[in-house]
């Protein structure tokens, strides 16, 4: 598997995300990470917002129950609890995920989030945009854009979730 990004490049991509969020927003935002790994990216973005003296809310979303492919799976994904400890009504939410690919996870996340209330605004921040959307969904903040083939697999590992930071590419014929 070819290494696409090492730990340093991942840190740089998180910097880029945090800086663009700081540059574009003025009011308090709610950073919501999508399980799994989106939550860890979100935590790292929040560390930088904190260092910059910005106040923010933080939440975690598990979207398993909102997936559009459950009926096609032979075993359903393991659920974890979502944790949305702030009032969603009227909030400016920034959804955070590790990789943006088909857009289906984000579609599910939008449904899951709006079951908690009616946000004033929802934006999308992704560590990596690898292209190949199947839905009309585009990110507002991107850490790094990667050129990939449709069948490639982009494998992200993160420190707290997987033990080490790396982005690898697995090519399928």
């Amino acid at each position: 598997m070819a290494v696409l990004m090492d730990a340093g490049e991942i840190e740089k991509a998180v910097d880029t995300l945090a800086e663009s969020i700081l540059g574009k927003t003025t009011e308090e935002v709610a950073i919501v990470g999508i399980r799994r790994r989106g939550d860890e990216v979100a935590e790292r973005v929040c560390e930088r917002l904190k260092a910059a003296g910005r106040s923010f809310q933080f939440g975690i979303l598990d979207i398993s129950l909102y997936r559009d492919d459950l009926a096609h799976l032979t075993e359903n994904p393991k659920l974890q609890s979502s944790d949305i400890p702030f009032v969603v009504d009227g909030a400016h939410v920034i959804l955070v995920d590790d990789v943006l690919f088909t857009g289906r996870t984000i579609r599910a996340a939008l449904d899951a989030l709006t079951d908690y209330g009616r946000p004033g605004k929802i934006e999308l921040a992704v560590l990596i945009d690898r292209g190949w959307r199947e839905l009309p969904i585009q990110p507002d903040y991107v850490g790094k854009a990667l050129e990939t083939e449709r069948l490639d697999e982009v494998v992200v590992s993160l420190r707290d979730t997987d033990g080490a930071d790396a982005v690898k590419l697995e090519q399928k014929d």
Binding site: L65, Y66, L70, A71, L79, S81, S82, D115
Partner: peptide, 23 residues
């Protein structure tokens, strides 16, 4: 273990999720 996230849903105003939609 899997029942815990379902119990958490009962705290929301919308208690419904679409997992078995159409079933």
């Amino acid at each position: 273990d899997q029942a815990i996230p379902f119990k958490d849903l009962f705290q929301r105003s919308v208690k419904k999720v679409p997992a078995l939609k159409g079933k």
